[in-house]
């Protein structure tokens, strides 16, 4: 597996060596470039879903949970999502310039037409999810190339709603 952290695009790969009960970080690359690996040991813990991480001699607990290929990690009072990618997989699979539904819900209003030019931040659609309204706004300027849904239609999370071209 190769990894990226949250929304960041950098791809890491990690080599761990078994060190008795613990694992030690032996090498680390970021976007294919070798990095200086910090002193880091990881060992298992009796509490399910929890591991012990020793960074530079300081032990800490981390809680982990797997969701699909992602690992949710609670460390130092913060939650992070580390995304797993198959080795050699396509890097940076952005949904191009498509705008996706952040939540399952219903389209309330479509404010633009296909072929229309829009500016950054312009509201393109209004959808309703969990009884609240959410505006779908243009991430940058461009021309509306395709509108996938009409007013009143239900959409699933992640559905491409509208596509923009430069």
């Amino acid at each position: 597996m190769e990894w990226s952290v949250g929304e960041n695009q950098e791809i890491y790969s990690v080599v761990l060596s078994n060190d008795g009960e613990a694992m030690s970080l032996s090498s680390l690359t970021k976007d294919g470039n070798e990095m200086v690996a910090p002193n880091l040991q990881i060992s298992s813990d009796d509490f399910p879903g929890r591991i012990v991480v020793v960074t530079e001699g300081t032990p800490k607990f981390a809680h982990v949970a797997r969701v699909g290929d992602d690992w949710w990690i609670h460390l130092d009072g913060r939650v992070h999502v580390v995304r797993g990618h198959e080795k050699g997989g396509q890097k940076g699979q952005d949904s191009d310039s498509g705008l996706t539904a952040p939540m399952p819900g219903t389209i309330l209003e479509v404010l633009v037409k296909e072929g229309q030019r829009v500016r950054e931040g312009q509201t393109l659609m209004v959808m309703e999810a969990m009884k609240m309204e959410h505006k779908i706004q243009a991430p940058g300027g461009g021309e509306v190339s395709l509108i996938h849904f009409r007013e009143g239609e239900r959409v699933d999370m992640g559905s491409v709603l509208i596509e923009l071209a430069d």
Partner: peptide
């Protein structure tokens, strides 16, 4: 985020098979 630590944790958790043991 402490990216290097986090990706190491993910790799270790995967190798420890924690995805199977983490249901309760």
């Amino acid at each position: 985020p402490p990216a290097q630590t986090l990706v190491s944790i993910a790799e270790a958790a995967l190798r420890m098979g924690l995805d199977k043991a983490n249901h309760g």
